[in-house]
Design a protein around this nucleic acid. Structure first.
Lengths: 114, 114
DNA sequence: CGCATATTTCGATAATTGCGGAAATACAGA
DNA sequence: TCTGTATTTCCGCAATTATCGAAATATGCG
């Protein structure tokens, strides 16, 4: 059984926590659907009908744990999903469930999807 | 692009939230490593040095969102990871990142691991 | 039944998080 | 520089969550 890497566990917990609020999960879903350009904050706000300040807090949280990136384009802020972080999260689960333990068969994960 | 299924999104958010606390993530890791038998509550407690009542709450939360199952064996309660729920969580991420969006290439998820 | 062990439930508190209006900041263009 | 739009930051409040000791419950055994 492989070495756990405490930092990865902590980082993953932080990211799960960020994904654990439905508004934020919805935000990320939107950004993924708009990948790789991402979306301007106001566009997200309009789509989800969230007050600007609340949205800003959520985006900040997602950014803080590395799940989203932001770039400025004049007055606009473009937010986009950080695929490296997402990959790391998915890999973490894959490792824990399918490699370190064999609790979940690897094939079953990438399947069902169709 | 496929239908989102609002219930799945909510359920996933709840599960991410449960995974978003490091003690609980550690608990799940232990249970996965001990899969499929799982572990007795007291064994988990000893391993992680968490007060019994605190641990009990964490286990309750994990159980509530479906990530762990429990069975009684005389005085002992055996907790174990619920692989169906874990598979659903992994599939959700896979769908969002690799299918609905192509943000993360599918191969890169199951790789790197080894 | 009464005891010992395993675990949960109660009750109370501290800490964190979510939220959103109002004010502040950033930027572009006239 | 003044104005308008985009977005964040400030501030405070409400709600949820994390913790944990103590008491309660569950179970098996002598």
């Amino acid at each position: 059984m492989r070495k756990p890497d405490p930092l990865l566990v902590t980082r993953s917990a932080d990211r799960f926590s960020a994904l654990g609020a439905e508004p934020r999960l919805q935000i990320l879903r939107l950004l993924l659907a708009a990948h790789p350009e991402g979306m301007v904050a106001g566009e997200v706000q309009e789509e989800l009908a969230i007050p600007a300040s609340t949205l800003s807090h959520h985006l900040e949280k997602l950014k803080q744990v590395g799940l989203v990136k932001v770039r400025r384009e004049s007055t606009y802020l473009w937010y986009s999903a950080d695929t490296d972080a997402l990959r790391e999260v998915m890999n973490f689960l894959y490792e824990e469930c399918c490699t370190r333990s064999r609790a979940v068969p690897a094939e079953s994960v990438v399947q069902i999807s169709r």
